[in-house]
Design a protein around this nucleic acid. Sequence first.
RNA 1: GGCCCCGUCGUCUAGUCUGGCCUAGGACGCCAGGUUUUCAUCCUGGUAACAGGGGUUCAAAUCCCCUCGGGGUCACCA
Length: 506
Amino acid sequence: MKIRVRFAPSPTGLFHVGSARTTLFNYLHAKKRGGEFILRIEDTDKERSKPEYEENIFESLDWLGLEFDEGPIKEGSYGPYRQSERGEIYEKYIKKLFESGKAYPCFCSEDDLEREREAQLDRGEAPKYSEKCRKIDHEEDLKKIKNGEDFILRLMIEKGKEISFEDKIRGRVSFQSDGIGDFPISKGFERPFYNTACAIDDFEMRITDVIRGEDHISNTPKQILIQDALGFDRPNYAHLPLILAPDKSKMSKRFGAVAVSDYKKMGFLPESLTNFLALLGWSPGDDREFFSLGELEKEFSIERCKKSGAVFNKEKLEYINGLHIKNIDLQRLTNLCIPYLISESLIIPSHGEEEYPPAMGARSVTVDFKTADGRSINFDTLKEIVKEHQDRMTLLSQIADLSSYFFNRIEVDFDLLQWKEMNSEELKDVIDKAINIISNIDKWTKEEVTERLLQEANQYEGRGRFLWPIRAALTGEKASVGPFEVAWILGREEALKRLKQAKKSL
RNA sequence: GGCCCCGUCGUCUAGUCUGGCCUAGGACGCCAGGUUUUCAUCCUGGUAACAGGGGUUCAAAUCCCCUCGGGGUCACCA
């Protein structure tokens, strides 16, 4: 039988990295086994569900490259894929439960229930329904319902029964029915509660494998009870360990960035996030830890998942991002960096800001830019600048800080220009030599610039004596890309201008 | 508190099912050194763990029991 998995988020907030991990594992499990990955939106809570959050789910999944086979926007044979559109399906099953006598109406008020629960908690008991309304006979029930009395439906639970299931990650997990009680399954006949909708949808959508967070373990027996009452097949279960904040608690807003879209903004690559998230709870069994999504699809197996929670380690994520940045195509990297340069006002698209950000990777190469200090600069030059930083970045956003001197007017002073104990006469001499060399280079190529400057540098007892002042004069920074590359990228005119300016400061 | 789950370096993990090859391996971080014109990259080395206690066994990180610790969950939310 073909495997069918689902990811079922509620659009009540921005798409969370924890959700992304669950989605990823579902996706990988389906891909590895040639199955299908279904997206189901659990938007039955009308107050908290928002269309913009649903949109954020789609965008995040798309960005991460986790394409679903069926879902909203991509209807399949088992839709609709939003719970808010599945009312008739739920009603059918809820009525069946009532008519077969497996569920009964409860007319207790919310306030009474709340008081009861608190009293139980105070006594140190597990909060559980008293089963007061279970005693009302069927005729009475029908009469009350007819009279329009408010009610919820509760599932009648058999006492002294063990409910257990085989978890793909944890092995056998079992619960006692006595600890569960007659739990509520719906408001009236129309509005199913979470466990009910979930059990019905998983069945109706032919879900074979339910892979979700550990926080759902305690929902599982309830869903199994509903499945049994309705005569549904039971899917396979796998409960993933949670992703933890550094204090080992469930990762929440307190942690800082939790939304996938936040990580995108910070300058992470989608492949870095999927790579990192895959390693949180799963490992290939050997020492490899650099994976593309495609490689994960081949390597993944649910059996190799860990049971214990994993702390989200930002440093490691950045390290992995650095690895992926080194690895990607320069053209793509440049396109990804440009928005950060623009947002820091280091460059301005000469055809107007509205050209950016364009659809990813679809940018026209003919667009030119102006630098912050008013020179014009083209895409190829930006590409060279990005290339020089490819090995230095761990976040795309770092490009702005790292390369600002390429675009801005710079300032230099004696302290910066000085190498060891050189005095200003020596420094002036070095700069004059550089000006002379640069002025006389015939072919303005990187190789030529490098060769000519290096030739001169070799005349000194330490190359730094010649090269440091030049690099400092060209960049105005203590740390930067090397002098040859900077001079070449800036171009003869700008390089000479900066050298002359430096000389004046001496 | 009840129920459920979990427990190897600070962190992510390999090893646990199928005891011995584990004086516990890798990675991030951190520290030291090297390469280099600066910074970064890169390279080399170092740091650091089987939660504790009992068993079983010739042999236990691996099997059993207890203790301790951490987490999740207990809605007319999902």
